[in-house]
Nucleic acid binder design. Structure first.
Lengths: 246, 246
DNA sequence: TGAAAAAGTAATGTCAGACATTTAAAGTTT
DNA sequence: AAACTTTAAATGTCTGACATTACTTTTTCA
């Protein structure tokens, strides 16, 4: 089988693209076994080392998995929400940290997306998610909590809110937005006073979800966004001011 | 430098994880050059082939790029929104097609996310995006349009809506949700009558955005979701009915 | 007879060394 | 000084070998 590959790229990249297309187009289906490395090297007329580099590229994207042994080989992988989510979080986190995305922009995106979940979460309110939110609120009130732990709990609270929408596609999409914010949030110092304000809004939101009031939950999220943005502005203004003196 | 690697995985995967951690943690910064393959093979005490497999894994995630030549090597890559978006679309598309995600669930997620953009798009309404939406509406009205072309135009319309929010993070996050729906939408046969209904709602939404009325735009999206879900139910019911007779 | 042990086999994982190709920098010539 | 040539260092690719794994088949022996 002759393969029409895009020139001017590494052979391993061309081969990876070729197989990737076959998977995306459905020519290769889930759990189907690819030809062995030796067969692929014949088919594409390259060495086994080059084929292996191509397969590792695909493995990095969770498109295939490999098994050793007599009946082993490379198999088309069923991408799990979990794996996709993990990749998305890594990518989103790096995207924000490497591209000078302002706190403001990232924060706006995050709360806009969360507001999209709020009505669904309120409509389908399930006890486990509400309990998770309440638990995190309790954690956030602990006096000796570090800023990092407070942020982690904040993320957990919001993930419970998102998961409460009961839509795995939505959860997957938002995981990146919520988690990627954490490094940015970690740059903020949370005073006792600002923590109290955030916790109060969390209570408002949890109450609204439990009451099935999506609009109130959305309003709570908007208030939380305003609060967070203001807090960030204060912290960054103070920091740039003090660093200017040094 | 001894490296504490997680055992029970391929060496190339361990090495890739090791370098990935260094990038994510910030120990390696953007555009920094990694040691040469020969140096890495010494550092990790593996062959050059194994190092190369690890580097190809990272390249597949756009974490590094490589350059040939005397001053070449592997460099930490600044992930672009474009590259991240392309990856996200691939992953999201496969996720939906491989995991038996119902049309209903995917559709719900998509419109929930779009509604999150609507208020921002309305607030920041810019002519280019509004023009793009109008153009797509015009395309959608063409009589001899195939279903696939209609879907493609639909996606373009919605991407213009999303981009209109003027938030690159939001655009990046939503690209996956919107584009991944396309294969599912392509399964639908669009009658002239259903096309008219969709186009009318597109006009409503574009008008609302142009008028700066976010609430109306959201309402239009909700109506469009209802319409789309109903259309899909009709198509799938008819299809399963006719196939049951065969 | 049947179950446990051993051997066979086919695949991926890893290594070593070689050569090809690319690219920038250094050196040389005009 | 500009143009050309050479050099060197890096990635890209190939070949062949051996190690490891895990399933299959065969053999052994109770």
């Amino acid at each position: 089988m002759k393969s029409n590959l895009v020139p001017s790229a590494d052979l391993s990249a061309q081969i990876a693209a070729n197989i990737r297309d076959a998977i995306v187009s459905g020519a290769l289906i889930v759990d189907e076994r690819l030809p062995s490395e030796a067969e692929l090297s014949l088919k594409f007329d390259v060495s086994r080392a080059t084929v292996r580099e191509a397969l590792k590229r695909l493995a990095a994207q969770s498109l295939i998995r490999t098994q050793r042994g007599a009946t082993g080989g490379a198999f088309v992988n069923r991408i799990s929400f979990e794996a996709a989510q993990a990749q998305q979080i890594t990518t989103s986190t790096l995207l924000l940290s490497m591209n000078d995305v302002s706190f403001e922009t990232a924060c706006e995106a995050r709360y806009a997306l969360e507001r999209a979940c709020a009505p669904l979460s309120a409509e389908r309110r399930k006890q486990p998610h509400i309990n998770a939110m309440r638990d995190e609120i309790k954690v956030q009130g602990e006096a000796d909590l570090t800023d990092e732990a407070f942020c982690a709990s904040d993320v957990a609270f919001h993930r419970a809110l998102v998961d409460g929408a009961g839509n795995p596609v939505l959860s997957y999409q938002l995981a990146g937005a919520v988690e990627a914010m954490q490094p940015l949030m970690n740059m903020i110092t949370f005073t006792a006073r600002s923590r109290d304000a955030i916790i109060a809004l969390h209570v408002t939101i949890a109450d609204a979800i439990e009451a099935g009031d999506g609009a109130a939950a959305s309003a709570g999220l908007t208030a939380l966004e305003t609060e967070t943005q203001a807090l960030a502005r204060r912290v960054f203004a103070q920091r740039s001011g003090s660093s200017a003196q040094v």
